[in-house]
Design a protein around this nucleic acid. Structure first.
Length: 92
DNA sequence: CTCTTGACGAAAC
DNA sequence: TGTTTCGCCAAGA
């Protein structure tokens, strides 16, 4: 059960094209658990190192990571794919 | 099994 | 625009 959800999340995140992004909530919906947005971030944080986890952001296109280092890395990765992030952390 | 921890989200201030 | 509050979910301790 929760195992299938995890696999779904991994599959979905893996399919996100470079230069594009999706929200945790939308990933949750696509994975079949409309209210598991938080769980999606939980999964990516722990075992998303091999996936394009940086393409998953908070709803509306905002960087929600608080930890400075990681936050910087995600923004860097997104910018390297052509996206523009404002000072406040919003994808333009 | 209970309690806590977030890279969430929507609503209310 | 920046908090705070609360409901939700997977993982860990």
């Amino acid at each position: 059960m929760t195992q299938d959800f995890k696999q779904q999340v991994i599959q979905i995140v893996t399919s996100i094209p470079s230069g594009e992004w999706i929200s945790y909530g939308d990933v949750a919906v696509l994975a079949g658990r409309p209210r598991a947005a938080r769980a999606v971030s939980s999964i990516l944080k722990r075992e998303g190192d091999a996936l394009p986890w940086h393409r998953v952001v908070a709803k509306g296109g905002r960087i929600s990571i608080k930890e400075p280092e990681l936050r910087r890395i995600q923004i860097q990765k997104l910018e390297s794919e052509g996206l523009v992030i404002s000072r406040s952390g919003a994808i333009m």
